[in-house]
Design a protein around this nucleic acid. Structure first.
Length: 767
RNA sequence: GGGCGAAUAGCUCAGUUGGUUAGAGCGCCUGUCUUACACACAGGAAGUCGGGGGUUCGAAUCCCUCUUCGCCCACCA
């Protein structure tokens, strides 16, 4: 118990001082800590923070995402739940490796010059120095995460979970090594999953090439391609089996221009007779569809473009690449090949062509389809479980239109390529024995000798997709695979996942799948997908466009609460937030103005109420309340109900699955803000405060005491209502509220009991 | 090629199951520095609810269609 702060409030709200004063006090007193032992007597409410990349710097998107989470967590903490907000960072395999590779490049080196072990050491020390800085920045906007639990996807603990997941999926028959055409980034030097190879609409060219028949040079077939350089690796021309035009060609050979290789014409229903000439060149090593055709017809699969995207005879390609093309970058080779084809009369025509080209999501390089060996997870069994929990109502997604997107993706799920040919990440836990050529050893612990022959073993060179660790986040952070972990028992499954739609497939769907597979329950009952922060031209804010807003600038100018309020007030469900990076004054006026107004309300109200103790409402003689008093107390009740309704229900009413009636409700943050604003500004300040000025002006008396009691009670309620959105200013004001006999906890949060509407109803009835 | 979303005041958006004069913030106009607040107060202007058709006693709200934006997915040779 503490005494109220009786110092007069300064005329201006000093955000910087308030924030630097209160945040450390909250953390010193463990206000943000969650305790598994308390979760038996209180409802747990759990949010796991989407772990930012270790190399990330706070941008306004993080600000929005984490403000939403903080509002929800503080709301539930205020309501008496055992609220856990679990923070951490992601080692971000490719992204982080790229950053360090750039540093090396500035020193004139590549990672290969440095060597694997030294490179990994260097990345690790880089991460140690700069990684996680973003978590400190999150504190500056008031994030009330349980920092004592800060996790990291590449920590020893989480690495255990990663291995466990890999080995268990292998035991379940879901992890396998596949030889097929995958997406390859020649710049990053690694394979990518389907999700990591992003489509970009492009105006390219469609090149029509003429291949002459080997047994009759007067006849030819024309094939169309957007990537003429791959013709060096062609092994067939495919036509549709029912296509009359080519019936006579099937089974005969054509001759590839430039390298003179003879390839057959095959019939395959993959070919669409209506596209182009109805004949398609088949390059099995450099196109996923052609790969399937090649398998069906048992065709060779020569590789003519190497891992760096350079044209040369890589594998089974002897005699296929003319000398003058060897060593050319794939795009230079394209230009030269087109010219060479034209020179020999093999180029029929070139047309502009609209299509989508896949790009690396980390460096935007055009992805090269490439034949290689990779580890895959067979996803369909996992997807079925993830679909089931959505259909049963164990899981919901808001806004609900995303549920269709989720379902569509899971129903058409494809196997997940989880191996990456980079160095920064969890090494694939598979060992090989060259001596006895045993089947690969998949192991939870490091293998040092072959269990069969005792000979030397070598570990798989690849590392795992960074998402293979983040998809375990909701339980790897709670102690899994130790199922006896008190945290796991108390806090799994969690409640809400807050993120942007961009990573619905990358992360959200996969977390649901892993949670269902490994623990039998969806890791959360609600996915809340918020909008994107955009500028006035509706462009996504980004560093490269230079249209970003640094949340820390906003904190410095107007305070964390003004930043938070502006974002929450503007956050309709699933709606993008528009802010003008060139006019911060205007963009953040709603938050700044509201904080100033609240401060002035508090200053005036507290000066009139004075420092003397006030009577609790319940002990006031009912007849001492005026109609205005009853009205504002009723309005407070309504405001609390409205705010609660805007945010809740916090969890399914039956504790397990959403009913149809509940399913779309809650998480309307802008409605929460608006209801609270209307009450505080329009009802409490504009109306009630004005109306009772004469009563407060009296020196003493029962009427003044009643007004003081109502005012203190109402403002107390208002501050508690607002605290989740604007924690600093509400705490600073709350500390000045005069004493009542029954309450004086250290902080406005979290020791208050649940909002109790019946209290107000009772006091009104008594009046 | 498939799917989804949006179109309401100058701007950004609310309008939950169709029901009295369509709301908020910012901006704008007119006053007011009234000892809590000019980041404020009092008052005000402002919308053929994208176009067309339909259902209905009644539609921003339901149905059809068109237009314009935006997003997602796809083995777009």
């Amino acid at each position: 118990m503490t005494s109220p702060d009786t110092n007069p409030l300064p005329p201006q709200y000093d955000a910087a001082t308030t924030e630097s004063e209160w945040y450390p006090r909250w953390t010193e007193h463990g206000v943000f800590l969650a305790d598994a032992t308390r979760a038996s007597s209180r409802e747990p409410y759990v949010i796991v923070m989407p772990p930012p990349n270790v190399t990330a710097v706070l941008h306004v998107g993080h600000g929005l995402n984490n403000t939403v989470q903080d509002v929800l967590i503080r709301w539930r903490r205020m309501a008496g739940d055992e609220a856990l907000w679990l923070p951490g960072t992601d080692h971000a395999g490719i992204a982080t490796q790229n950053v360090v590779e750039k540093q090396l490049s500035a020193e004139g080196q590549t990672r290969f010059d440095v060597g694997r072990d030294a490179f990994v050491t260097r990345v690790a020390s880089f991460v140690e120095q700069t990684g996680g800085e973003i978590l400190n920045q999150l504190k500056a906007i008031g994030s009330s995460a349980d920092w004592s639990r800060t996790a990291y996807t590449f920590s020893p603990e989480l690495s255990v979970a990663v291995r466990e997941a890999f080995v268990r999926l292998h035991e379940d028959g879901l992890v396998y090594k596949g030889h097929r055409v995958i997406h390859w980034c020649p710049r990053c030097g690694t394979s990518l999953s389907d999700e990591e190879a992003e489509f970009a609409d492009t105006t390219g060219k469609l090149y029509h090439l003429r291949y002459v028949l080997a047994d009759d040079p007067t006849q030819s077939v024309t094939v169309a391609t957007t990537r003429p350089e791959t013709m060096l690796g062609d092994v067939a021309v495919a036509v549709h089996p029912d296509d009359e035009r080519y019936r006579a060609f099937v089974g005969r050979d054509v001759i590839l221009p430039l390298n003179g290789v003879r390839i057959p014409v095959v019939a395959d229903s993959y070919t669409d007779p209506a596209f182009g000439s109805g004949a398609v060149k088949i390059t099995p090593a450099h196109d996923p569809n052609d790969f399937e055709v090649g398998k069906r017809h048992a065709l060779p699969m020569p590789v003519v473009i190497d891992a760096e995207g350079v044209v040369r005879e890589v594998e089974l390609a002897s005699g296929r690449v003319p000398l003058e093309l060897v060593g050319l970058d794939r795009f230079d080779a394209r230009t030269k090949i087109v010219a060479m084809l034209d020179a020999v009369g093999a180029l029929v025509k070139v047309e502009p062509h609209q299509h989508s080209v896949r790009h690396c999501y980390r460096c935007d390089t055009v992805v090269e389809p490439r034949l290689s060996d990779q580890w895959f997870v067979r996803m369909q069994p996992l997807a079925e479980k993830a679909l089931a929990v959505l259909r049963s109502g164990e899981l919901r997604i808001l806004p609900d239109r995303w549920e269709a997107v989720y379902v569509n993706w899971l129903e058409g799920i494809r196997d997940w390529n989880i191996s990456r040919q980079i160095w920064w990440g969890h090494r694939v836990p598979v060992w090989y024995c060259d001596a006895c050529a045993q089947t690969p050893i998949v192991s939870r612990s490091d293998v040092t000798a072959c269990p069969t022959c005792g000979g030397a073993v070598r570990q798989d060179e690849d590392v795992l997709d960074t998402w293979f660790s983040s998809w375990l986040w909701p339980f790897s952070t709670l102690g899994w695979p130790n199922t006896d972990s008190a945290d796991l028992k108390a806090f799994y499954p969690g409640d809400v996942l807050v993120t942007a739609p961009e990573i619905l497939f990358f992360w959200v769907s996969r977390m649901v799948m892993s949670g269902c597979w490994f623990l039998g329950q969806s890791p959360f009952h609600t996915v809340y997908l918020h909008g994107t922060v955009r500028d006035m031209d509706h462009r996504k804010m980004s560093k490269s466009l230079g249209n970003g807003i640094d949340p820390l600038d906003v904190v410095q100018l107007y305070g964390a609460d003004a930043l938070r309020w502006t974002m929450v007030a503007g956050l309709g469900l699933g709606v993008d937030v528009m802010l003008d990076p060139t006019d911060l004054d205007k963009s953040f006026a709603p938050g700044r103005n509201f904080c100033t107004k609240l401060w002035n309300i508090g200053r005036f109200l507290l000066s009139r109420v004075g420092a003397d103790a006030v009577q609790p409402l319940s002990t006031l003689p009912p007849e001492s309340l005026t109609a205005a008093d009853a009205w504002i107390l009723d309005r407070l009740d309504v405001a609390i109900l409205e705010c609660d309704a805007a945010l809740g229900p916090a969890r399914p009413g039956n504790g397990r699955t959403w009913t149809d009636a509940e399913r779309g409700r809650g998480l309307r943050l802008s409605e929460y803000a608006e209801a609270a604003r209307r009450f505080v500004w329009n009802e409490l300040a504009d109306w009630y405060l004005e109306s009772i000025k004469p009563r407060l002006a009296a020196d003493s008396g029962a009427d003044r005491d009643a007004a003081r009691a109502v005012l203190a009670h109402t403002f107390d309620g208002a501050l508690r209502l607002l605290q989740p959105m604007i924690p600093f200013i509400t705490e600073a004001l709350w500390q000045h509220l005069p004493q009542t006999p029954e309450r004086r906890p250290e902080f406005i949060a979290p020791y208050f009991p649940r909002f109790d509407h019946t209290l107000h109803a009772a006091s009104l009835q008594g009046s």
